[in-house]
C-alpha cells in the first residue's frame, strides 16, 4: 500500500519540476502546457453551455405544454338577429366580440384595444369605440382614428355554420394593416 501511495506523489513531483523548468524546457513540454490550456477552455465552454442549458430549461418552465383557456369558437345565432347599421354588444361580456352588420354583411370585431388591451366602450351618439384606459378611439369599422392605438381593431373569422347560425372563430384573426380584411372569412356577406 505505501508503495502505491508513493506512486502518484512521484508523478506530481515530476510534473512540478516540468512546469518549473518550462522556461528553458523542451518543445514537448511547451505543447503539454498549451494543450492543458486548451483543455481548460473546453472545460469552461462545457461548463458555460451546461449552465446555459440549465437556465434555459428553467425558463422553459414558464411555458406549460397545455393551456386551460375557454374555447375560441362559438355560434351566435342566425344573421337576421342582427340589425343593419347597429353595433351589437350582446357578446361583449361573454366572448369579447362585437358583431356589426352593415348593408353588405356582418363582421366580428375584437373588443381588445390594440394599444394595451383594455375594452373600449361603444358610444352610440359619437358613433365610435372609445377606450377608457388611454383614450384611443375607433370607428365602427374598427379603424383607429384618435388616441394612442397604433393600429385598427382586429377582426375574427366569421363563417356560416351548417345549421344556419353564424360561427365566430377567435383563433383566426384578420389585421387591417396587413391587408387581411379582404379575406373572404373576415366578412360574412349576407
Amino acid at each position: 500500500m505505501p508503495a502505491e501511495a508513493e506512486q502518484p506523489l512521484q508523478e506530481k513531483k515530476s510534473s512540478q519540476q516540468a512546469t518549473a523548468s518550462v522556461g528553458e524546457g523542451t518543445i514537448k513540454e511547451k505543447v503539454q502546457r498549451r494543450s492543458f490550456i486548451s483543455w481548460l477552455a473546453v472545460a469552461w465552454v462545457a461548463f458555460a453551455a451546461a449552465t446555459g442549458g440549465f437556465f434555459t430549461m428553467i425558463l422553459r418552465i414558464f411555458f406549460p405544454n397545455v393551456l386551460f383557456e375557454p374555447p375560441q369558437s362559438f355560434k351566435i345565432g342566425p344573421p337576421d338577429e342582427y340589425e343593419i347599421g347597429l353595433v351589437d354588444i350582446r357578446w361583449q361580456a361573454k366572448f369579447g366580440t362585437w358583431i356589426i352588420r352593415d348593408s353588405e354583411g356582418i363582421y366580428a370585431l375584437s373588443t381588445v384595444c390594440t394599444h394595451l388591451g383594455c375594452t373600449p366602450n361603444w358610444l352610440e351618439n359619437e358613433s365610435k369605440f372609445k377606450c377608457p384606459c388611454h383614450g384611443s378611439g375607433f370607428r365602427r369599422s374598427g379603424i383607429n382614428f384618435e388616441g394612442p392605438a397604433p393600429r385598427p381593431l382586429e377582426r375574427y373569422r366569421i363563417v356560416m355554420a351548417d345549421d344556419g347560425q353564424i360561427l365566430i372563430d377567435k383563433s383566426k384573426k384578420f389585421q387591417y394593416e396587413k391587408g387581411q380584411w379582404s379575406d373572404p372569412e373576415a366578412f360574412l356577406v349576407v
Binding site: A93, K94, G96, H115, T119, P120, P132, H134, G147, P148
Partner: peptide, 27 residues
C-alpha cells in the same frame, strides 16, 4: 370582469407617469 373595463381605468399611482407617457409613445 375581463369583459368590462372601468372607465376611467387608472394604474397604481406611482405608475401614472408611465400611463401618461403611454398616451404619447408606443407601448
Amino acid at each position: 370582469n375581463p369583459a368590462a373595463t372601468p372607465n376611467p381605468s387608472k394604474a397604481p399611482w406611482y405608475f401614472l407617469g408611465l400611463q401618461e407617457m403611454l398616451v404619447y409613445f408606443d407601448p
